[in-house]
């Protein structure tokens, strides 16, 4: 895959999908996870995806993140068609452009916080230093601790530091606060907001928590495999002011 940075001038959307479908299984037992999704997500936006379980938002995130391929339709990243990209091209796409944050942190238990971040900066082309990334999430003092020695919120902030350390163009977060209490959840959202603002990474957050939507530029509601509603917030709330 070519480096896509230079193409942003021709297409201002970071992601564009047309008629995107995803079907699991076949025949009578086929499950239609996406039923024709048309979306446009501008560069630098912080987007919140809302919707009930099974509405297709995780499937969309997986496709946008290059972890899964659509069954039909089209998916473009900065104008480049990734719909039928090879496994290798998708690996490179994730490696260079995408930062992931998961509900369950998924840190390497055998690496310290700093090493978890360095794991990614080692293979990144123009990354932050591990120290800088950990500082952005306020964890520079816990850098030499192993995951087993960190609290859930701390682990999640390490995961965010890991995701941002490569200066990703895209941050994809699937239920990043799902396993955290409200105070910790707010710290994590603050970190995501900081990253979105300082690095300008297009950030997509899946959440069950409708209150989180107030901090987004754009809120997309999913139902039954389709985009139900897209709302653009004219005024954004700070994470600490969110109704949890």
């Amino acid at each position: 895959m070519q480096d896509t940075r230079g193409q942003s001038s021709r297409d201002t959307a970071c992601f564009r999908t047309r008629g995107l479908t995803k079907v699991y299984g076949s025949g009578a037992s086929a499950v239609h996870a996406l039923r024709g999704v048309d979306l446009e997500i501008p560069e630098g936006d912080l987007v919140v995806l809302l919707g009930p379980s099974g509405s297709g938002k995780s499937t969309l995130l997986n496709i946008l993140g290059g972890l899964d391929r659509p069954t039909g339709g089209e998916f473009l990243f900065r104008g480049e068609d990734l719909t039928r990209a090879s496994t290798r091209a998708l690996t490179l796409y994730r490696r260079r452009h995408v930062g992931f944050v998961f509900q369950f942190y998924n840190l390497m238990p055998s690496l310290t916080a700093r090493e978890n971040v360095e794991l990614v900066t080692e293979i990144a082309q123009n990354g932050l230093s591990a120290g800088e990334a950990l500082e952005l999430v306020g964890l520079e003092k816990r850098a030499d601790h192993f995951p087993a020695e960190l609290s859930g919120g701390e682990q999640q902030r390490v995961a965010i530091a890991r995701a941002i350390a490569k200066r990703p163009e895209v941050m994809l977060c699937d239920e990043p606060t799902g396993a955290l209490d409200s105070a910790t959840g707010i710290r994590v959202l603050q970190a995501l907001k900081t990253v979105n603002e300082t690095l300008g990474a297009t950030t997509i957050i899946i959440t069950h928590n409708a209150g989180v939507a107030d901090m987004a530029h754009r809120v997309i509601t999913f139902s039954d495999g389709q985009v139900g509603n897209v709302r653009v917030n004219t005024e954004r709330a700070n994470p600490e002011d969110l109704a949890w």
Binding site: P109, S110, E115, L119, E122, H145, F146, A148, E149
Partner: peptide, 20 residues
């Protein structure tokens, strides 16, 4: 999660030439 902080392997942090 397995705790690696108690294992002697934790000391490898000092070995900068070893990649992660």
């Amino acid at each position: 999660p397995p705790d690696y902080s108690k294992s002697i392997g934790a000391g490898l942090t000092r070995w900068q030439m070893l990649d992660r």
